[in-house]
Amino acid sequence: MTDSAQIIRDGNGNPAFAVLPIAEYERLLEAADEATATRAFDVYKATQPETFPDDVAERLLGGEHPVKVFRDHRGMTQAQLAEATGLKQAYVSQIEAGTRGGSVDVLKRIADALRVDLDDLT
C-alpha cells in the first residue's frame, strides 16, 4: 500500500476501510485478475483430458485398431507394450490385427500402459 492510503476505523478503533489512490486500486485489480487467470488456466490444464494430434484421430476414424494407434502414438513397440502389460507380444499383435479380442482385464492393462481410458480402446 502507498503512503497516501488512509485507514478508516470503526467505533472501537479497529481498521474498517482503506482508502487508496485510484492508480493503486487499479494496479491491485489487474494483479488479482492476472492471478485468477493463471489459477484458472492451471485448473483447466489439470482437469482437461489429453488431446491427440489430427493423425491419431484420422487413423482411428480410418478404422485402425485403437491399441495400435495409441501404441504408435506413445512410441512403443509391441514388445514394449507386451512387457508393460505382462502379455505376450503375439497376443498384442493379434489384438491389434483384430484376430483376437481382449478381455476387459487385458484391455484395462493395455489402456493403463498407454495412458488412455478403457473406452478409448473399444
Rank of each mutant, 00 (worst) to 15 (best):
M1I: 07
M1F: 10
T2E: 11
S4C: 07
S4Q: 14
A5M: 05
Q6P: 00
Q6Y: 06
Q6A: 12
D10T: 09
N12K: 11
G13H: 06
P15H: 04
P15V: 09
A18C: 12
L20Q: 13
L20M: 15
P21I: 02
P21E: 15
I22W: 03
E24F: 04
Y25M: 13
E26I: 07
R27C: 01
R27I: 04
L28C: 06
L29F: 12
A32W: 05
A32D: 14
D33T: 13
E34C: 05
A35M: 12
A35L: 13
A35P: 00
T38L: 10
R39A: 15
R39E: 15
A40M: 12
D42M: 10
D42Y: 03
Y44D: 11
K45H: 09
K45S: 13
K45C: 12
K45Y: 07
A46G: 04
A46N: 09
T47V: 04
T47Y: 01
Q48V: 12
P49K: 14
P53V: 08
D54E: 15
D54R: 13
V56N: 08
V56E: 04
A57E: 15
R59P: 01
R59V: 06
R59G: 06
L60C: 06
L60T: 05
L61M: 10
G62E: 05
G62S: 08
E64Y: 08
H65V: 09
H65Y: 12
H65K: 11
P66K: 02
P66M: 09
V67Y: 03
K68Q: 12
V69P: 00
F70T: 03
F70R: 10
H73M: 05
H73K: 05
R74L: 07
M76A: 03
T77C: 09
Q78F: 00
L81N: 03
A82Y: 05
A82D: 10
E83T: 13
A84W: 01
G86D: 11
L87K: 04
K88I: 08
K88E: 14
Q89I: 03
A90D: 11
Y91P: 00
Y91W: 07
V92C: 00
S93P: 00
S93L: 00
Q94E: 15
Q94L: 11
I95Y: 01
I95C: 01
R100W: 06
G101D: 13
G101P: 01
G102P: 05
D105M: 05
V106H: 02
K108A: 15
R109H: 08
I110E: 04
A113R: 03
A113M: 02
R115D: 15
R115M: 07
D117S: 08
L118T: 08
L118M: 06
L121G: 03
